[in-house]
Amino acid sequence: MNLRSWFLVPARLTIGLFFAAPLAIVCGYSLLTRGDYGGAERPWTLENYTRLADPLYAQILLRSIAMAAAATLLCLVLGFPLALFISRAGKRKNLYLQLVVLPFWTSFLVRTYAWLFLLRDTGLVNTLLARAGLIHHPLALLYNNGAVLLGLVYGYLPFMVLPLYAALEKIDPALLEAAADLGARPLTAVRRVIIPLSRPGIVAGSILVFIPCLGAYLTPDLMGGGKTVMIGNLVQNQFTTSRDWPFGSAASLILLAFTSLLLYVFLRRAEVR
């Protein structure tokens, strides 16, 4: 073996030992039966997978997909005008891009906590509204689907804005001038020229937001307060409170399969282009 191959040995060991082997163990567990005191025992079974089709769990899977899709759509709608603004900001482009990325570089936990601080019953928003005499009981701003959605959009908006910006930046301004000369109003130009041309950015941004939202754990946990259960919470619960590792393994493999499949399709499409 020559020196070059040795350079890759540490990474192969790390990934093999701490990524591939753990996944292999989870695959094995997902086909076993839950032991009396947790853990996993024989006989081998597919029961853990069929149990995911049970209405109780199917509902969690569907809710996760719906929440991730809603968060993606919201990020797209909210991120598009922002990306458009930045792409036309001239010299200040870089400053604005930094402003988009900056919160992303802050601890995810701290960013989620900031919303708890604002929105909980004794939080700033409720306190201000109560002092202004607008409300007499605190509004239930947290621990519902809307709060989880807010947390997801806040967390992953930069993932949408950056690829959108990259796509919008490439659009030749002459095309817009042409549209205007031919009598298109600004909104028509956006709809007929800008949106179609920014499709690659829309697709990339949507994938980048959808994937982490689907596997979200911390946001539904803190902002949903255990009321909005998504797949990530189901998995965590099976490995901690419920101590049903085989079922938790099956759920996490379904999640991983879904994520990788999406990414694979997206990368293949990107390659074809």
Partner: peptide, 29 residues
């Protein structure tokens, strides 16, 4: 220096694996 598609693929897969899945698989391991 040289292509290593399998390693590269696994690295990227580890990047997109949801944190909770990485966490429970390491715990199980």
């Amino acid at each position: 220096k040289r292509r290593a598609p399998v390693l590269q693929g696994s690295l990227y897969l580890s990047l997109v694996t949801p944190e909770i899945v990485t966490g429970i698989s390491l715990l199980a391991f």
